[in-house]
Design a protein around this nucleic acid. Sequence first.
DNA 1: GTGAAAGCGCTAACAC
DNA 2: GTGTTAGCGCTTTCAC
Lengths: 333, 333
Amino acid sequence: MSDVAAAAGVSLKTVSRVVNAEGYVSTDTVAAVKAAIEQLGFRRNDAARQLRQGTAATIGLIFEDQSDPFYSTLARAVEDVALAHGSLLLIASSNGDPAHSQTIVDAFTSRGVDGLIVAPAAGTEPGLLQREAAAGRAIVFVDRPVPGVDADTVLADNVGGAAAATAHLVANGHRRIAFFGDDPGVFTATERLAGYSRALREAGLEPDDRLVRLAAPTADGLDDVIGGVLDQTDPPTALITGNNRWSIRMLRHLKAHASRAPLAFVGFDDFELADVLDPAVTVVAQAPAEMGRIAAELLFRRVGGAEEPIECIRIPPRLIVRGSGELPGPALA
Amino acid sequence: MSDVAAAAGVSLKTVSRVVNAEGYVSTDTVAAVKAAIEQLGFRRNDAARQLRQGTAATIGLIFEDQSDPFYSTLARAVEDVALAHGSLLLIASSNGDPAHSQTIVDAFTSRGVDGLIVAPAAGTEPGLLQREAAAGRAIVFVDRPVPGVDADTVLADNVGGAAAATAHLVANGHRRIAFFGDDPGVFTATERLAGYSRALREAGLEPDDRLVRLAAPTADGLDDVIGGVLDQTDPPTALITGNNRWSIRMLRHLKAHASRAPLAFVGFDDFELADVLDPAVTVVAQAPAEMGRIAAELLFRRVGGAEEPIECIRIPPRLIVRGSGELPGPALA
DNA sequence: GTGAAAGCGCTAACAC
DNA sequence: GTGTTAGCGCTTTCAC
């Protein structure tokens, strides 16, 4: 910058004024400075700016896996809001590991990010995050909360969505409905299971442990787990998968065991090609882009210094009827 | 840091030595400093560190759309390599707009990223990037090159892959094979079309313009475009889609027009659920994770100061036979 | 093993 | 409209 100042024959501060469009500089001076900038190929050093101003114009995103379509869609929506605020995105994947998550939070905060949007790993302790939140760093949780941290949170209505999926299958005549969800440590898995159980009871049906399995959809040996449920005596006539990874896993299993009688199927969370499969897959669709947008807007409100009370927003999922969930069950047959 | 120094009763520099594990500090002093750090909740300010050292321990990724599964998979692989080098990832989507791309490059370089991994937007001029490359900033292009920029590049063997897809269909008895690819401005679209044409000629078949359409897979009115090709007199019996977005688009069209005679189908680039569809979709699979890993390794080699000559690596795609590409054509019927 | 001093490139505060 | 000064928090250099 001092080189530019010398080249343009003005002071350092004047260059700074031009670079930051502060105004109060004569048109001629602006032109001279801009010419010097162009000629020297000058670009502001944001590290110095950040050191002085204390703002990085950057926010950090932490997800289990940035290549999961749910999160990559969410991230894209966050990016669009961040762009409107002149902010960039640091992204890192936690792999569902709270310890690694903590390392990432450390690395992000060391770099002075203005805020964090986090889908916390199962088992995340509030400690570090609560210290950050208390120190005034903007934090928004998406998809999952961290109890004990005072931060805005954007969640799907998991209970309501799973209950709607279950009620839909009941309405189509099913009485034995299986549920396959993520690890019980995962917040959404537990909530969705609760919604499933609630809807069963509301329909006068008794939840049956033999119809429920909770496991990471990436785990080994799932074919046996699924088979154990679907091939038991008094088997289910319908099933629900608790997230898009489980839906994909289940579809692969069902294709490999196509000789089995067809089951009604509702997936939690929409996924690409669900509409093209045969039968097309009925889902309770989350709105990842909307969740990302809302989370980002909440975040930038805090970054901007808003002092409103902490919010926890629940986004209602939407049942999309496509065919797989409407195969009639025994009560309608 | 000076607070920590005061609390531990040592000098600033000693704290710095401990924080950066430089050694040459007595065990007692280290313990005292660490205790002070813990107690004060100190975390190093990386903006100051960066200002002094000139390294941000951050690399920038620029893709058309970070939520495209091809790119999000690639980004994930880059992240894993970056993690091993203690580096974080700034990610931004160009939306295929060269001007916006340039803004992102500016923003990234202002922040002092150590390197850039870029899938350049169609129509990107070498200007800015070549200046950066010449100034010594590490740059690696993935998926598409920018002619005129001296930078390592990791590409798929698009010509070979598309030729293999075409030859496969020919071998299965097809003589009229349609090709649907991205906009002609897109490097990969042009290369893949060239591979298709070459394979046709090698099989003694004359490429027919009526069987080729190049358009963005997100464009409006594609049903008419596709229909115009598939419903003409002397229609194709097989088709190739030029990327995973086009494959999805085509599958949706084919499902909506299921009354039409089935066509053999090979997609360029694999996609989730291709194996579950009926028939399962034969593809020429790219290796986005491998491309990301290799690109990141090249990048960090340059960041580390390697002076080896510029490399352009071609990753061969792999034909995955699943069923849709093996429907027999007239020459075998 | 430890410390003092200088300075990275910028902006805030305050002249003029 | 423009310029001067100080200092953000760290690392580099050199001294002890």
